[in-house]
């Protein structure tokens, strides 16, 4: 599970450099998110621009990643493609996360 991150201001932007977050990688995703966000001081934005498929296990792993940050650190999402956005809307998880169209929008929020 290839994740990379960079700090911009007080925001940690974590990019998912994979086309899919599905049942076969959900646990690795959660573990890698814990590693990437180990030393955070502010909020996190998850850049999903390279992800074109997510299943309910992947969705659960993103929820788990949000929970493991602790309540003082927010997890925002950005750059959801159509199929990923559809899963968030149908499960109403779009009401749980702040979702931005671009990394810039997440930075400006």
């Amino acid at each position: 599970m290839d994740l990379s991150s960079r700090v911009v201001g007080d925001l940690l932007i974590v990019s998912v450099n994979e086309p899919r977050i599905d049942a076969s990688v959900a646990i690795q995703f959660k573990d890698r998110m814990r590693e990437e966000t180990d030393a955070i001081t502010g909020h996190v934005a998850l850049d999903l621009s390279q992800v074109d498929f997510i299943d309910s296990s992947g969705l659960g792993a993103i929820v788990a990643a949000m929970k493991q940050l602790g309540s003082e650190h927010r997890l925002d999402l950005c750059c959801l493609n159509e199929n990923v956005d559809k899963v968030f809307r149908l499960t109403r998880m779009d009401t749980v996360f702040r979702i931005f169209a671009s990394v810039d929008d997440a930075l400006a929020a």
Partner: peptide, 15 residues
Amino acid sequence: DVDTTRENLPEGGFG
């Protein structure tokens, strides 16, 4: 149900 506290958010059962 996703109208709940952060700690109680479901991580499965959506399939």
